Simulated assay, not measured.
Amino acid sequence: MRQNPSFTLADVTEIRRVIDANPWTTIVSNGPDGLVSSHYVALLDDDRDDLTIVGHVGRPDDLIHGMGERELLVVFQGPHGYISPGWYGDVQAVPTWNYTAVHLAGVPEILSDEENLAVLDRLVDRFEGRMPEPRRMWERPNDPAFVTRLASGTVGFRLTPTRVVAKRKLSQNKSAETVETVIAELEGDGPYAHPGLAAEMRRAHEARTGGLR
Rank of each mutant, 00 (worst) to 15 (best):
R203T: 09
R135Q: 14
V41Y: 15
D33G: 02
H56N: 11
V94F: 04
E180A: 15
R208V: 09
A198T: 13
G55S: 08
R149Q: 04
T154D: 10
D90H: 01
R163P: 00
P32Y: 05
L159G: 02
V74P: 06
G106Y: 07
R135T: 01
D45M: 08
R140L: 00
L73N: 04
N142F: 02
L111G: 07
W24V: 00
P95C: 04
E180L: 14
S38N: 15
I27V: 11
Y40V: 00
T154F: 08
S84A: 07
S175W: 04
G58E: 14
F7Q: 05
M201H: 13
F7A: 11
A184D: 15
P79H: 11
S84D: 12
L51H: 07
A176E: 13
N142I: 00
P5V: 10
T160Y: 05
L73I: 00
T181W: 03
P5C: 10
H194Y: 08
T148L: 08
Y192K: 09
T96S: 12
P132W: 08
T148N: 06
Q92N: 04
G68Q: 02
P79V: 03
L123I: 11
A101M: 05
N142E: 02
S171Q: 12
R135D: 10
R59V: 00
D50L: 06
E14H: 12
T181E: 11
L72M: 09
K169D: 11
R2G: 05
R130N: 15
P95V: 02
F127T: 11
G34D: 10
G106W: 08
S152K: 11
T160Q: 10
E114Y: 06
D46L: 13
H80G: 08
D62M: 06
